[in-house]
């Protein structure tokens, strides 16, 4: 598959997965690779410490942070409710409002994303999705609000977002996981509930931190240095076992979930730098080239 075809599948891509699986890394890698392929890219952060700016500093990708209170204020402003937005924001009433109709904070963020998706300013918008169990709630916000809020601007907003979710040419969700039993179980569960309950198109699954490589040959020939060095054998056994387990998990994932897989290699670094993102982006592009078009 051509990289332009891969990145052009849907304009809005939401990267989702449990905490600690490397969603931010994947967001940066996608943005880096797509920007390198000549696309106009926007990377969006929703929460946490902003890091994408640093990771993408050497690319043409733009970075934007969207928070719920700001998105709500922005939304009200553009709907002729500027006075209202001031009041809501200054009083911290957003908390109370969000409690009255849960998902309202999510829907304004999603509404903002929809607005960006419609704007034609970008070819690709990659969103570093919310963490932990919040991803599903976030994606389900539109559906839930259609029932609780039966009229008014929020209702319209929810309808628009749902429409976008259900159009695979506009929006896709990329799920990220690690090559281990529990994260993969969780990914499979998430995948089914996202498809069934949200109706959004799932892109390839991205497996992060995979220890690639062939099995290490452990042959105790008539070599004395080997028996004198039990650490070498223990280390090789350990590595082979880990790789074997990871391969089994990847195989299980492809059996249980009919989605293409992209694996990103584990890097021996303390904290990712822009250079590491570039290495991972190269690996991503190579695998995209091998996907069927």
């Amino acid at each position: 598959m051509e990289s332009v075809q891969f990145f052009g599948a849907a304009r809005l891509v939401i990267v989702a997965g449990k905490g600690g699986v490397g969603k931010t890394t994947v967001t940066a890698v996608l943005a880096h690779a797509a920007a390198g392929a000549g696309l106009r890219v926007l990377a969006v952060e929703l929460e946490g410490k902003p890091v994408l700016n640093d990771l993408l500093a050497q690319t043409s990708a733009e970075v934007l942070t969207i928070t719920a209170p700001e998105a709500l204020a922005d939304y009200l402003d553009t709907h002729g409710l500027r006075r209202v937005s001031k009041r809501l924001a200054t009083n911290g009433i957003i908390d109370v409002v969000a409690t009255a109709a849960p998902g309202i904070d999510d829907i304004v963020v999603l509404g903002k994303l929809k607005q960006l998706e419609r704007s034609d300013d970008y070819d690709l918008i990659v969103v570093d999705g919310p963490a932990a169990g919040h991803a599903i709630t976030f994606l389900l916000a539109a559906r839930g609000l259609l029932d609780t809020v039966r009229g008014g601007p929020i209702h319209t907003q929810a309808q628009d977002v749902l429409e976008m979710f259900q159009d695979p040419t506009r929006c896709q969700v990329l799920l990220v996981t690690l090559p281990e039993t529990t994260p993969i179980n969780e990914l499979i569960e998430t995948a089914y509930s996202v498809e069934e309950r949200v109706g959004v198109q799932l892109g390839p699954v991205i497996v992060n931190g995979v220890d690639l490589g062939e099995p290490i040959t452990v042959v105790d020939s008539d070599n004395n240095s080997l028996s004198a060095n039990p650490d070498l054998l223990a280390a090789a056994d350990y590595r082979n076992h880990r790789r074997h387990c990871q391969r089994d998990e990847l195989k299980r994932l492809s059996t249980d979930l009919a989605l293409a897989q992209i694996v990103l290699p584990q890097l021996a670094v303390a904290g990712l730098t822009p250079a590491d993102i570039s290495v991972l982006a190269k690996s991503l592009l190579q695998q995209i080239a091998q996907l069927p078009s």
Partner: peptide, 11 residues
């Protein structure tokens, strides 16, 4: 104001 945004039932 809030009613305008979230709807009357919720309020």
């Amino acid at each position: 104001t809030i009613g305008k945004v979230v709807g009357g039932d919720v309020l």
